[in-house]
Design a protein around this nucleic acid. Sequence first.
DNA 1: GTGTAAATTTCGATA
DNA 2: TATCGAAGTTTACAC
Lengths: 260, 260
Amino acid sequence: MKYKILEKPGCEDAYDLIQDALRKKATIIIFACCKVSYEGRALSELNWGERIIMIKPDGAFLIHQEKKVEPVNWQPPKSRTRAYIKNDNLFLESHRRSPKELLTVEVKKVQFISYANMEDYEELEQAGYEKDMSDMIMEKPHMIEEGFTPTTREYSVEHGFIDILGKDSDNNLMILELKARKAGVTAVKQLRRYIQDMENTDNDYLREVNAEKKKIRGLLVAPSIMDDALELIEEEGIEFVSVEPPRELKRDKKVTLDFF
Amino acid sequence: MKYKILEKPGCEDAYDLIQDALRKKATIIIFACCKVSYEGRALSELNWGERIIMIKPDGAFLIHQEKKVEPVNWQPPKSRTRAYIKNDNLFLESHRRSPKELLTVEVKKVQFISYANMEDYEELEQAGYEKDMSDMIMEKPHMIEEGFTPTTREYSVEHGFIDILGKDSDNNLMILELKARKAGVTAVKQLRRYIQDMENTDNDYLREVNAEKKKIRGLLVAPSIMDDALELIEEEGIEFVSVEPPRELKRDKKVTLDFF
DNA sequence: GTGTAAATTTCGATA
DNA sequence: TATCGAAGTTTACAC
């Protein structure tokens, strides 16, 4: 990792370091007293105070106060960063084209500034999401119930997409709504709308259901369910099936790169 | 701003500095090669690579790669941070009680580490949001139309909350759905559901509408509207009113504190 | 603490 | 480029 640090630099030294870092596509960290204004999708002002400024080589620009996970102000990747000196003060600007957004930082006092080119070829491997649940159910449909046969994923209806559509052993139509976390009333209402959509819209499934005088079953599939959602489910004649999202990291571990 | 920097520290020096910083409730920044694992609401692994680690005094813990606005891994405020040495390697752990979540960072090579106590007494002033629009309409209802009288905000119905409920000059019931950004079909559907909710649920407003043989008018209030949403509005007999979210920062600027 | 809705949501996939 | 939906969403606010 190539890096550089400057402690309590003057305005021009800080400016030079930033220009250097931007050219080298390095990640920049600045501890400084600054004032921030933003105009774009919304509008904001942040008066003088000490913060951490982070500028990434992909154009992302973040200003962090000493609280919260979220930055107090930011600009997304692909934004254009510019530094300049005006009235002996250092300014940083981050500009986005579409939608038009401008972030302006006036820097009063830099405590220290640093940049580094970071070598990182790894991506996050993760599991435990709705998609993982869906994959798992498509592979092992019997975990929903014996005889369940999934037919379609992401089936488009008026109010959205049905996660999994399928049939039970009696050829009844099954509509599955998956949630990777505890399901609330929102999930039940969503499923209810999908069932209505299937009932109200002309489609092959509905025709088959009507021809064979079969039922449409709605199933909410989640690790657990909130009390009020459970009540609603019983009123609506919807079923709840408890399924934990899979907790296995699927991608093979890549060979660890040894950078040193 | 009190701060400290250590370049290429050994494992124990880095450990000592972190302990020092945690005691002093300082914000910590580390440029290092690390490996991350997370287990909690989901599950993830991130193999060896160079990243920036940020630990805030409120317990927030962030790991940033050189891309994206969002951290690759994180822990929310109030998490408990712990540092320890095992097999001559530095480990950082961030633990959250409820929901139970654990983030573990194995640090191989610290390029530099720093901490600072930041003085920042300012909060972000902002404008241009749905709430600002709502405030403005309550203050100047004539901007919706001449004779409009708002009665209730955040009126609870089956499928959510009606932003503003009111009456026009003919005593017809008006249901306003506000959007601070360009309104899409989702907003129209939302409003349509609220109108249905008002029509189907017994309430004082409905009784009055029925008694006086008045109408229920649905209004979508937003700066602009997407084409497909406009079509849907016309089909549904809903009205669209163009209102820009206010772009004035309301709070008086505080006196600038001079820290130095 | 729980639940609900907004957010400069971000981010990825897709048409 | 715009839209759509998930997210370890986060955050604020009401209950």
